[in-house]
Computed example of a mutant assay.
Amino acid sequence: MVSIRIVKATPKTDFAAVSQVYYDTWQSAYRHLIPADFLKQLTPSSWHPEERWQNTFLAITGSEEIVGVCSFGRARMADYAGWGELYSLYVLPQFQRQQVGSQLMDQALKRLSQTYENNYVRVLNNNLAAQKFYLKFGFMKTNTVLEDVTRFGTIRELMMIREG
């Protein structure tokens, strides 16, 4: 297992490398979960992690490679005003199942709990592995499924909540 440290993003973070983590992870993790044409139209510049640097943790190797990212903050959905939201948690495929995601999650939940009693995350409805991961951290499945109708097909996300 490789040595990883979790650090807070700063304005000087290499956000192109962070965007690449998003891109590479989406291409791998969602390959069979969302429409292929949706994935094909993405590029690393589809993401703008620099906009959330204040609420982002990075997983960094000893050689300073960014291999994971987790961002979080105030709920973006009006129905969850006053809640915290886990926006994203991505780990490069070759670093998965090595506790990197768990380390990122621990830090994000610690920070979220300083401000919010309740938190939620939106997870692809068919991403059972991610749902299982979030269950380990106290999130519970709800009956709420959000639908995003794109020109490539409908993407469905399950709401998972973690209360006080």
Score class of each variant (00 low, 15 high):
residue 31 R to M: 01
residue 143 N to K: 07
residue 37 D to C: 00
residue 104 L to A: 15
residue 76 R to A: 05
residue 125 N to V: 01
residue 31 R to Y: 05
residue 141 K to Q: 11
residue 103 Q to H: 12
residue 123 V to A: 10
residue 63 S to Q: 13
residue 104 L to T: 12
residue 18 V to L: 11
residue 138 G to C: 09
residue 28 S to M: 02
residue 77 M to H: 11
residue 13 T to W: 09
residue 164 G to M: 10
residue 89 L to I: 15
residue 75 A to W: 12
residue 2 V to Y: 12
residue 145 V to S: 04
residue 67 V to S: 04
residue 164 G to T: 10
residue 145 V to K: 03
residue 121 V to M: 08
residue 150 T to P: 03
residue 116 Y to T: 03
residue 160 M to N: 07
residue 140 M to K: 14
residue 79 D to L: 04
residue 82 G to T: 01
residue 29 A to H: 04
residue 72 F to L: 14
residue 36 A to T: 00
residue 80 Y to L: 14
residue 117 E to P: 00
residue 37 D to W: 02
residue 130 A to D: 14
residue 17 A to I: 11
residue 14 D to Y: 10
residue 117 E to A: 15
residue 111 R to W: 08
residue 12 K to R: 10
residue 24 D to E: 15
residue 101 G to L: 08
residue 59 A to H: 11
residue 86 L to Q: 14
residue 48 H to G: 01
residue 7 V to Y: 05
residue 141 K to D: 10
residue 61 T to P: 03
residue 108 A to R: 08
residue 21 V to P: 00
residue 117 E to I: 05
residue 24 D to Q: 14
residue 158 L to Y: 07
residue 67 V to C: 09
residue 151 R to E: 13
residue 69 V to H: 02
residue 61 T to G: 11
residue 37 D to H: 02
residue 28 S to N: 06
residue 121 V to S: 08
residue 16 A to S: 04
residue 129 A to Y: 03
residue 154 T to D: 01
residue 154 T to R: 01
residue 39 L to I: 03
residue 66 I to W: 08
residue 25 T to L: 07
residue 144 T to G: 00
residue 17 A to M: 13
residue 156 R to K: 14
residue 113 S to T: 12
residue 119 N to G: 04
residue 136 K to V: 01
residue 59 A to Y: 09
residue 146 L to W: 09
residue 43 T to A: 00
residue 62 G to D: 15
residue 8 K to P: 00
residue 87 Y to E: 14
residue 109 L to K: 05
residue 52 R to N: 14
residue 99 Q to W: 10
residue 81 A to H: 03
residue 102 S to H: 12
residue 24 D to I: 02
residue 110 K to Y: 13
residue 49 P to G: 06
residue 49 P to Y: 10
residue 150 T to W: 05
residue 33 L to K: 11
residue 69 V to R: 00
residue 104 L to M: 13
residue 39 L to Q: 03
residue 51 E to R: 12
residue 24 D to W: 13
residue 108 A to F: 06
residue 22 Y to Q: 11
residue 159 M to A: 08
residue 157 E to Q: 13
residue 45 S to M: 02
residue 133 F to E: 15
residue 120 Y to P: 03
residue 22 Y to K: 09
residue 96 Q to L: 06
residue 24 D to R: 13
residue 83 W to I: 14
residue 121 V to G: 04
residue 35 P to I: 06
residue 82 G to K: 01
residue 128 L to H: 12
residue 41 Q to E: 13
residue 112 L to N: 10
residue 38 F to M: 05
